[in-house]
Write a protein that binds this DNA or RNA. Structure first.
Lengths: 217, 217
DNA sequence: CGATTTTGTCACCATACGGTGACATATAGG
DNA sequence: CCTATATGTCACCGTATGGTGACAAAATCG
């Protein structure tokens, strides 16, 4: 037999195929990290021919851009505000806000995977996520300034940037290691412990008058 | 002419070649990131045939391992202690120690590049560096416990892990971005500002009795 | 229904990768 | 000096990558 090979035709549905491709991107990021996302891998994972990726998204960067617009990669500022809105003091607002941030990040493993890849993988996807992060930070700072009185000498942007950076980095690392600097970072219970210290750090950074008294030895 | 092609022989010197290969690894990490280190790239960069890499180091992982033993990737605990040894209080010791940490990390761009690649690039090199970090943390914690009295409720491991994580991550990110969360992270001057907040956070985390008094709205 | 556009399939290209075998010759040991 | 080993050179392999051209058939539109 010359084996006509029954090539099993496929229902033609541009929209469905496009979605399958974008879904495959997400699955690949999750499974193999952002560096595992390539034309061939995506086509294979999506069960679509790679030529369709080029037709629909232009090239790999176009795919990244399209995927960046697809997902729900961050909490929104509104969500943040409603989640923290009833805090009486700035300190309580920051504590609740950073807890909210950590909880929301843990719900978005794809975002964590992208963050993990950020430093070495400067694709449009990571650039897009960075832009969102910066815009959101500015928004949040404006809201904080409007709602709370900031103690003199307190540097709210530096404070939140430091703690958010630590949270994001440690959550991203927790995908592959269990301990960082002798501290467990894997389970929610571990993070309860960590947040006790974060709360104290926030209190310190907001302490109204740091006496600066130096003792000489 | 049949062009005998003058193949330009090379002086044979195993030691020198080996060193050239390891040097090439460092240069490549610096220029292209850890993911830019491959057999072909290293051979090209070192001006040596790749078969020599296999002969001398086994395979790519062996190369990583050999390179991990080559470099001075971290400060030593002794250096840390002499740099901080005269601090009168635990708070001052931690402030000085973390400043020292940041300064030493900034002197080691290769280490920063490896840290940047850590989350997605689990080569023996990053594993080796992680092990050093963990050992060093334990060492340091022991020394601190022996020298200073730790206030009740203060979690020194969590405190140092959080701040060190933020420093390492932000320094690694500073290689490719200028601002994180609205805060400049590039120049030493930027870091002076950041360290003001770090100092305050340390004070807060070491504050002896956090009253926990909540105000209701 | 018939013509045109769109979707999907396949075969191909050049390039790069990690890895290996065969061979020449410079060096070191007897 | 002659021999054995170690060093370096070259040509190859299979596999994967990003990317393109050609073609068949399904869907759409007149």
């Amino acid at each position: 037999m010359v084996t006509k090979s029954t090539p099993k035709p496929k229902r033609r549905d541009r929209e469905k195929t496009g979605r399958a491709i974008l879904d495959a991107v997400g699955r690949l990021i999750l499974r193999d990290g952002l560096s595992g996302v390539g034309i061939n891998a995506v086509a294979r994972e999506a069960g679509a021919d790679k030529v369709l990726i080029y037709r629909y998204f232009g090239d790999l960067d176009g795919l990244y851009r399209a995927y960046a617009e697809t997902g729900d990669f961050w909490w929104t500022v509104e969500d943040m505000l409603t989640s923290v809105g009833d805090a009486a003091t700035l300190a309580e607002a920051l504590k609740a806000g950073l807890r909210f941030h950590a909880a929301e990040m843990r719900k978005r493993p794809v975002t964590l995977a992208v963050i993990a890849a950020e430093p070495e993988n400067r694709t449009p996807l990571v650039v897009a996520l960075e832009e969102v992060r910066e815009r959101r930070s500015l928004d949040l700072m404006k809201n904080i300034a409007a709602r709370y009185e900031v103690p003199e000498g307190a540097d709210i942007p530096a404070l939140t940037a430091l703690i958010a950076a630590a949270i994001d980095y440690l959550l991203a690392r927790a995908r592959s290691i269990r301990v960082y600097g002798g501290v467990d970072i894997k389970t929610p219970k571990d993070w309860e412990r960590i947040f006790v210290t974060i709360d104290a750090m926030i209190d310190g950074a907001l302490a109204p008058a740091r006496p600066k008294g130096r003792k000489r030895s």
